[in-house]
Design a protein around this nucleic acid. Structure first.
Lengths: 341, 341
DNA sequence: TTGTATGCGTTATCAT
DNA sequence: ATGATAACGCATACAA
């Protein structure tokens, strides 16, 4: 936008050089208190604002970071919720957040990353759907990146993930403790070994195995995606196929919220006919009927760590050399109506 | 970010001047096809990307627009949902969207607008909570703005609002037609005349009046905010105070979803004990139990018009001179389980 | 149709 | 501690 007042104007007014104004504005140490005061007053009087484009052009960083994550635009969206927290956290670091939702194919993801570079983002918080560990080379080496999510991250990047196996183990065990003996997992059985959420499936299987012989076989109800709509359809289909488990575990809360709805479509009620628990700790689960028990990662912790790690990498002279890092977010099991009888 | 390859490098490689490269990149008409081809190849070979900061510095526009709206970070958020659609629409215009959620006071709002200017946004889609018509002067004259939302907009701006009165009239009438005779409005009675949603209250009153003498007095249940939590608390309190309407109208879906939950907390069920209808057409209302009837504005229409109008103003030589514009989004009444018996 | 000169507003570098 | 100079990469204005 038109930016009439320049640094030079402020400098003239304060009777100093533009360089001094620049130093004051960026909080550089060595400016005499008196000059500093004069400059600050001149800034106020003139209503001066820095021109970010000029600053970025010269200094090489823009103060903008990007969040590339799936489904931020759909209902009950995990990344929609997390995006809000990340934006807050970013602001505390003086950074702005731009959110984008690329399609789930490799080309679109790479294009989104390229776009981020084109737009001069200082860094990227990225939840890849298609990018695999071996695709690390597709990430520009000089672009600071923090990876979120459950897929194996491109090698050499900082990666924050959830305790998928442990979480799902806890969720399944919770249902077992509440008396369920025939527990279905809404997850999709066709998912490849490398699927991001394969660990969650493992946790479910492990919990059944660990409990002893009194549980039925693992029962996998396939869902077509991680949306409420997919969960709803999967639940209906499973009922139509005659499945009647006494407990449901959802790979995500959005899937489970949809599934509870789908069960209701077929006249089945939670928790009366079956218990249900999800994964993600979506705030909406607190308001649903029944309210949804869930494995809730510490979202604020994740947002904070993600921005911190990114900031570190932005500040580092050679981000790539910081190397890989794998950290797990802590979680709690939140018990609500859907697992109470 | 470090941006090694410059336009000059591409130009050298293609054997033309930097200016020709610039023209090719921006699709200027007059470039010989042969040169164009050579330039395009050079761009591919070098992996060149424009430096947006330099372009912005020189040309004055950044390709970024901002959305300033409340509550994008809370569950069942109207603007969270709408923001997703606006981002899609913006992308079709070659624009990126940055979303921010300022606090609901005048200072914070003005600061957010200032910040938008600082960051060289090309324009702003704004839902003011505190800015009033008379505060138009606080908006930089040269900043293209489109205002969304139900408060009276700063004078002289383009404003897209909902058909609040008509919508609420339709919602209330719908409950009357379904047999309700004692209908409460969850809205807050302490709200000033100028409140954004005062028109919705009007619509409710009008509908009761228009129906004839068989309805009770208007019954206003005050809510502390437009969140699910506020709706929940309001509903509980009203029950505790002995109110037992046979129908509820919510100023927003998020309030109503919370209220349905709050009624359940007190053992009351929708639609068995009372019908309920909201306003906003949140997608989550399709998955709730019961699914929520609602007045649903055409969100895609709103997103499309908002970006179109903003683009117009960005392209205009003097945006301010385009003058004020008031348009209303179309809506439909979506009937779901919460109003079926 | 293409190229040349110039400056956008800022900050890195180096000199004082 | 402060200031002078140059350069960041591009697009405007104009010349050829």
């Amino acid at each position: 936008m038109a930016q009439r007042i320049t640094m030079a104007a402020v400098a003239r007014r304060a009777g100093v050089s533009p360089m001094t104004v620049s130093n004051v504005l960026r909080g550089k140490a060595s400016v005499a208190p008196e000059l500093r005061a004069r400059v600050e007053e001149a800034v106020r009087e003139t209503g001066y604002r820095v021109n970010v484009s000029a600053r970025t052009l010269r200094s090489g960083h823009s103060g903008v970071i990007g969040l590339l994550a799936p489904g931020t635009d759909s209902p009950f969206s995990y990344y929609g919720m997390l995006g809000g927290l990340i934006a807050q956290e970013a602001r505390r670091h003086g950074l702005s957040l731009v959110t984008e939702t690329p399609e789930a194919d490799l080309l679109a993801e790479v294009a989104a990353v390229e776009r981020a570079r084109t737009l001069a983002y200082d860094g990227l918080i990225l939840t890849p759907l298609a990018l695999r560990p071996e695709d690390a080379s597709l990430l520009p080496a000089e672009l600071p990146v923090v990876v979120l999510g459950e897929r194996p991250a491109p090698t050499g990047t900082a990666h924050i993930s959830l305790s998928n196996q442990e979480g799902m183990f806890a969720a399944t065990t919770h249902l077992l403790e509440r008396g369920c003996r025939s527990i279905a997992l809404l997850a999709g059985d066709g998912w490849p070994e490398t699927d991001p959420l394969a660990r969650r499936i493992d946790g479910y299987r492990d919990a059944l195995a660990a409990w002893g012989g009194e549980t039925g076989e693992p029962m996998l109800i396939p869902v077509a995606g991680l949306t409420a709509q997919a969960g709803r359809e999967a639940a209906r289909d499973s009922v139509d196929r005659g499945l009647r488990p006494d407990g449901y575990v959802g790979v995500t809360d959005s899937v489970m919220l949809g599934a509870v709805r789908g069960l209701a479509d077929r006249g089945l009620r939670v928790p009366e006919d079956a218990l249900a628990i999800g994964f993600d700790g979506l705030p909406e689960g607190e308001f649903s009927l029944p309210s949804l028990s869930t494995i809730s990662p510490d979202h604020r912790w994740i947002a904070r760590r993600a921005v911190e790690l990114l900031q570190e990498r932005i500040d580092a002279p050679a981000p790539a050399e910081l190397g890989g890092l794998e950290i797990r977010a802590p979680f709690t099991l939140v018990e609500r109506e859907s697992t109470r009888r």
